[in-house]
Amino acid sequence: MENFIQLNGKRVLVTAGTKGTGAATVDLFRQLGAEVITTARARPNEISDSAFISADLTTEEGCEAVAGAVRERLGGVDVIVHMLGGSSAPGGGFQALIDDEWRKELDLNLFPAVRLDRLLVPGMVAQGSGVVIHVSSIQRLLPLPEATTAYAAAKAALSTYSKSLSKEVSPKGVRVLRVSPGWILTDASVQLADRLAKAAGTDLEGGKTLIMDALGGIPIGRPSSPEEVANLIAFLASDRAATITGVEYIIDGGTVPTV
């Protein structure tokens, strides 16, 4: 039976595709027939050299190296999935966020997408087709003041930038979309739940409940899996979504409480 989604022959760049949701997205795109290159600072043993670019995307030089390698190896790109993101900011609210912490959040969550788009999207415009997917976060709508203010603000900036880019390049054949996950059950989030559980004197399931409670609850009662988020990204990248552009898709089990 033919797959509902086909990505045969698509040339794809997925940033931060070696772990978690990024790795799930890379795996699914390859299963669906795409030729995928991914990036991280270090190459895992299971990924071949030809499918990987080692780079620090928080720097201009790293973004330039990735864009150059994509052009050389793929001859251009049809889909970019900007998966890179995260936060290392300390707790303690806004007063703990010195300028250096703000720079780190913007350098990780905003500037890699801006720089890579500036380098690669003109090629999409020239060929008259392409898809750019910016992975944002529901934190842009539900920031946690104790720890995620700078991360949430950077993701909000990414979302606004993404919308503006879509208005500029969609008339030229390039679709631009946002995917905003809530809590995803990755190895890193399991480790967080375990730390919270130990601190609270409970078990792992209790730690997961603590995270859900901090988010205000997840109506379906569990986080998304990396594979579920990858499924959404693959659909949006495919020709099945050919008239979808400029919008945001939230995948959070119902966490965001507003319309």
Rank of each mutant, 00 (worst) to 15 (best):
L204N: 11
A214S: 12
T202Q: 03
P226E: 06
G221P: 05
G206R: 14
L196G: 11
R195S: 15
T209P: 02
S224Y: 12
T186K: 03
G221Q: 07
K198F: 05
S189C: 00
S189E: 06
E205H: 12
L192A: 08
I220R: 11
G221W: 10
D203E: 11
G207T: 09
K208L: 15
K198V: 02
A214V: 04
G216Y: 04
A200N: 15
K198C: 04
S189I: 00
A193K: 13
P223F: 14
L210M: 11
A193W: 12
Q191P: 02
D187A: 04
G216L: 03
T186V: 01
P226Q: 07
G207L: 05
R222G: 00
K198R: 15
D213G: 01
E205M: 10
P226Y: 05
L210C: 12
M212V: 03
T209C: 03
L192F: 10
T186G: 02
A199N: 03
L210N: 11
S224T: 12
L215A: 02
E227A: 15
P223D: 09
L192C: 05
S224N: 13
D213V: 05
D187Y: 01
I211N: 05
T186D: 01
E228W: 08
S224C: 12
L196D: 09
A188H: 06
L210V: 03
E228V: 09
